[in-house]
Design a protein around this nucleic acid. Structure first.
Ligand SMILES: [Mn+2]
Ligand SMILES: [Mn+2]
Ligand SMILES: [Mn+2]
Ligand SMILES: [Mn+2]
Lengths: 226, 226
DNA sequence: ATTAAAATTTAGGCAAATCTAAAAATTTGT
DNA sequence: ACAAATTTTTAGATTTGCCTAAATTTTAAT
């Protein structure tokens, strides 16, 4: 029934991009937004959208943007599941660092084999999150965003654990490495500088001053939950 | 220097096919042979050969067939290395059976990342042979064909170990499974039926009658070496 | 040595995925 | 409300990899 298996790599990349853009706003996804994220031209996007629409992967009305159908969403989740499982594999089994995995996972996510990905899942002991703290959809596409907050938005004296990054560019991740910030670290927010929004935090015992930009790209899971 | 990295999947598949066809005979590889193995048309092969020739991957003179250049050979060995390492991975780490790995490896062999393949090599403890008994080229493309003989061609009373298959189609491999024939098995040749070339062998203690066709697709490493 | 057969290449086309430039629709600003 | 700016789509090319059909070259058979 689902001919997901005869999708081209390009089609898969469009679907994935539309999924990511669609998550944030509740609006339809704009042609230009897709083009920008995929580093292609709007006219190319329009062409592809028409094809995806034919295949019932997206809802599309001219000039009105696109959204994924349920089939499209399912497809996107399948690709994201593969991407993130491969990222875990690279870190856990092949000793890649978290700033090296994305590029390779971009290739591996297009490998077609249900058995492969389910076996990989088992080998990795069914991980729930990837190396950047992003949730991994299960076999049926089910996944729960973890309850978490940007470090830049929690009140002073909040205590919690670093559970993810918003920006997962290699540049940012290497910066975090250099400053000894990693997922799993205990963090408490000591002070917020009103002038520039920088934070004084305690992380794994050490004191550290981080800019607002950094804080706005770190997710924390606070201890004070119900 | 080597722009191996900007080869398309199609180019890589042609190079790999030319390598495999070139191994056997010492002759140039024929256009039609490539077309048949790749299930494409001779005219398509000619088109691609021209492109590969431009890129200095094959030697080509019109109507005279092709052969790999040293760059082409190096490229082929790189792809074969990846293919076979992935096959080992699938069997050793993901519990695939030896008849299931080839199709997936056909996809995985095109993933571009030196770090990935070298780490995989390490994870697998630098295997020398793939699940079908074929040798795995090392990082530098060096590899030695194991000294072995077709079961159909050794004399009566030869004793040895089953080390490989010539035909590695799923059909043949499943047949071997069904008859309890696996790599590593001790084999001794008891009798050869002149009429049809079938063999009476002892394999891991059991007696078994196998047809000439089967024997002609099983490699044995004999015990009587220097 | 010719002729017939087979192998290979060329010529011309097609589909996918991209692009540039121009046209059309929508949104924004006053 | 209406012109200007922006966004999106269309039109027409290009590249890659493939195809069919026809022409060319090589090989095999008499
Ligand atoms: Mn990633
Ligand atoms: Mn990730
Ligand atoms: Mn194989
Ligand atoms: Mn193999």
């Amino acid at each position: 029934m689902h001919k997901l298996y005869l999708m081209t790599r390009s089609e898969e990349n469009y679907i994935k991009t539309i999924f990511h853009l669609g998550r944030k706003g509740t609006q339809e996804v704009a042609t230009n937004a897709i083009a920008e994220l995929m580093e292609t031209k709007p006219s190319s996007v329009t062409d592809m959208i028409k094809k995806l629409s034919e295949k019932n992967l997206v809802n599309y009305k001219r000039y009105q943007g696109v959204s994924l159908t349920s089939l499209g969403t399912k497809t996107a989740l399948g690709i994201i599941r593969k991407h993130r499982l491969w990222e875990v594999f690279l870190v856990e089994k092949l000793d890649f660092s978290w700033d090296e995995v994305h590029e390779v996972a971009e290739q591996l996510e297009h490998i077609k084999s249900d058995k492969l990905i389910d076996s990989l899942d088992r080998l990795l002991a069914f991980p729930k999150f990837d190396p950047h703290g992003d949730p991994i959809p299960d076999k049926n596409g089910g996944f729960k965003e973890r309850d978490r907050d940007l470090l830049s938005e929690v009140p002073i004296n909040t205590v919690g654990v670093c559970v993810g990054v918003k920006d997962s560019s290699a540049t940012f991740l290497k910066f975090l490495d250099k400053n000894g910030i990693a997922l799993g670290n205990q963090i408490s927010v000591k002070e917020r500088e009103e002038f520039d929004g920088s934070l004084n935090i305690e992380i794994d015992g050490r004191n550290l001053q981080i800019s607002h930009v950094i804080a706005a790209n770190l997710y924390i899971k606070t201890n004070d939950e119900i």
